[in-house]
């Protein structure tokens, strides 16, 4: 175990940069976070999908921050404070984005309301109409 650890550290020092950025238990969380961060170099991809230098730096940063004990939301906050809201794929629910999040639900409810009140017969009426 110890040997493994020493080897790992030595290895990491030799191949310092760009080497494996996540050797912790947070692999899944790391993946989840990096899928939600948008790459600035190759805009249109997430950090997870990109192999650009920038993406690798951010991946390293995420591992470091996770080891520091930051949670997902705090990491997003950190990146947003540096790069702006654009960097995160999931827009937060605030005044700006209120319509974005609410409008689909509102229209869904309105549509359902219309369908079930205006277009569909109530049971009682059925008999009246038939005779």
């Amino acid at each position: 175990m110890k040997i493994k650890l020493v080897l790992f550290i030595v290895f990491n020092i030799i191949f310092n940069y760009n080497y494996v950025y996540s050797k912790n238990n947070n692999l899944d969380l790391h993946k989840q976070i990096s899928k939600n961060i948008r790459c600035i170099v190759c805009q249109g991809q997430s950090i997870d999908e990109s192999n650009s230098d920038f993406a690798i730096n951010i991946k390293n940063l995420i591992s470091a921050k996770l080891e520091e004990g930051l949670n997902e939301e705090e990491i997003y906050q950190f990146l947003k404070s540096r790069y702006g809201e654009w960097i995160v794929y999931k827009p937060e629910l605030n005044i700006n984005n209120f319509i974005l999040w609410i409008l689909p639900y509102a229209l869904f409810i309105a549509g359902g309301f219309y369908i079930f009140t205006k277009l569909i017969k109530k049971k009682k009426k059925i008999n009246i109409n038939r005779y």
Binding site: V41, F54, N57, N60, L61, R82
Partner: peptide, 14 residues
Amino acid sequence: DNNGSVSISLGAYG
């Protein structure tokens, strides 16, 4: 800046 972390803190990307 060995691993790019300083430049990230500065909001730089390249």
